[in-house]
Design a binder for these strands. Structure first.
Length: 509
DNA sequence: ATAGGGTTAG
């Protein structure tokens, strides 16, 4: 290293380190050149070393005879994921060092429970850092993390400056606690929005399975043109497009990725495979799979599931064989995909074999999804007694999907007498799920049990279950057209219905 | 002369 290098240049070299060894060399230089006595050098070194090895950072910290606020802030920040921050904070206070606004965000993130968070919040109030946006935004997101969304809202309400980040923290917090309407309200009222605020909204919608809402917001975002969709937005929108069959929008994202030379990495590749497969374009899904330079277990699982759901069962099993030969080690999700492949042709024997293999060869535990597939398989093949036994035997509580499969089986195999108990469970598990009532009512009607239908109707009114009208949209020339069931609002509704009628007539003849 | 918050994952 050159003798004439100045101190600021050392800092630049420090930031270019990509391994711990390089960092150690620089550290050695600092010591031999007598730079280790400068606070700004050691605190930079400290915060930087933590990105490689927290223990090395601790060693550096221990060597500092009189640590300053900078050193403490760096080490607290480094430890913030390991719950050591509070201890260091106490040590700092014992050294008679006053914390500052830079101390608290890291200290807040270090809290491992609501109790310690409240204590830190107390310190923040006492020492007058409540008006700092960095502090409030970290408090909001951590309160929401510990399901104290009420406290998160309170911090937000009481803070004088509500910038983009504070609002985004609260949006995420509301979504993760199921308060979708509150999240939307914050978003509507926020003074400015950036890519992260949009990604918080869109990922929140997707997490709550509100796919159309996510896509609608994405279209709005593009229309206003002020903010570019980031990685998180694009991945979530691909997911949503797969869920609702938004083929054109998803495909345009793929084109955009290619145009902008965004590399189709693991996440994008897997998302694209899943998206194309769900939209029924299995060939395009295969193209993406075959051109990806590296694939992980999620990529392989997505491809196997795609083949399975598109009726290419044999291909799905062949791909699994290839995976076992020279792909990544399969996981639980791979086996869910394989069971789905069995489902489409009701390959019961094969499914039991796969479960055995999963357990014995790969030492994987069965999850509720695997039981769900098996119940569905048994119910489809008419083995309703066996399905019922499996439901009783499974180690976890059956969910709505499992009872749903069972009841569908009862209906198709005309074993209505087995359905009653299942129906009760289903409505207990999902009392607000309108689709379940409709299904059960149809089942009663099929069976001529009109009193059953009336009973279900009554339950729906009592429990205030609304049937949300279904809606979808289609993008034409960049304009999103939204339609509800039986919708007559569209300016061309009349023509549309006439054309549909015409098509219907052609199909019938 | 330094430093801090929100999205991306089940």
């Amino acid at each position: 290293m050159n003798r004439t290098i100045s101190n600021p240049q050392y800092l630049l070299i420090l930031e270019k380190c990509s391994t711990l060894n390089q960092l150690k060399q620089i550290h050695a230089q600092f010591i031999t050149r007598g730079l280790a006595r400068f606070t700004y050098i050691t605190s930079k070194l400290l915060s930087f070393s933590a990105t490689f090895d927290i223990n090395y950072a601790q060693t550096i910290f221990n060597q500092i005879t009189i640590p300053t606020i900078f050193h403490f802030n760096s080490i607290i920040s480094a430890y913030s994921k390991q719950q050591m921050g509070i201890q260091l904070y106490t040590k700092m206070r014992n050294n008679s060092i006053q914390p500052n606004d830079y101390t608290f965000p890291a200290l807040v993130r270090t809290c491992d429970c609501l109790h310690s968070l409240v204590q830190v919040h107390g310190q923040i109030v006492k020492l007058g850092s409540v008006s700092d946006v960095y502090v409030t935004s970290s408090l909001i997101s951590m309160y929401a993390n510990y399901e104290a969304v009420g406290l998160a809202k309170q911090v937000f309400e009481e803070s004088l400056f509500k910038n983009v980040v504070c609002c985004t923290s609260l949006i995420t917090g509301c979504f993760s606690n199921g308060l979708v309407d509150d999240a939307c309200k914050v978003f509507d009222e926020m003074p400015e929005r950036n890519d992260v605020s949009y990604s918080a909204m869109i990922s929140g919608f997707v997490k709550n399975e509100m796919f159309n809402e996510a896509i609608e917001l994405f279209c709005q975002m593009k229309k206003c043109g002020m903010v570019n969709p980031n990685r998180s937005v694009l991945l979530n929108i691909l997911n949503a497009c797969g869920a609702v069959g938004g083929f054109d929008i998803g495909r345009s994202i793929h084109c955009q990725l290619v145009d902008e030379c965004f590399s189709i990495d693991l996440d994008f590749g897997t998302a694209l495979i899943d998206f194309y497969a769900k939209c029924g374009d299995i060939e395009k899904a295969k193209d993406v799979f075959n051109t990806m330079p590296c694939k992980d277990v999620a990529t392989w699982s997505a491809m196997i599931l795609g083949l399975a759901t598109n009726g290419e069962n044999e291909m799905a099993f062949e791909l699994f064989e290839e995976m076992e030969r020279d792909g990544p080690v399969p996981n639980e999700i791979t086996f869910v995909a394989l069971l789905v492949a069995c489902n489409h042709k009701t390959l019961l024997k094969k499914a039991w074999c796969l479960l055995g293999k999963m357990n014995k060869v790969y030492d994987l535990q069965l999850t509720i999804e695997h039981y769900g597939c098996m119940v569905d398989l048994l119910a489809r093949s008419g083995q309703l007694k066996e399905a019922e036994i499996l439901i009783k035997l499974m180690p976890m509580a059956p969910d709505g999907a499992i009872w749903g499969s069972f009841l569908h089986g009862c209906l198709t195999h005309n074993e209505i007498h087995l359905a009653e108990a299942g129906g009760k469970h289903l409505l207990e598990l999902e009392p607000k799920h309108s689709g379940r009532y409709v299904f059960l009512a149809n089942m009663c009607a099929n069976n001529g049990s009109w009193e059953g239908v009336i009973k279900l109707r009554k339950m729906m009114t009592e429990r205030k279950v609304d049937i949300d009208p279904g809606w979808s949209f289609i993008e034409v020339n960049g304009i999103v057209n939204k339609f509800f069931v039986d919708d007559q609002c569209h300016p061309q509704a009349k023509d549309l219905h006439e054309i549909l009628q015409l098509l219907n007539n052609i199909l019938m003849n």
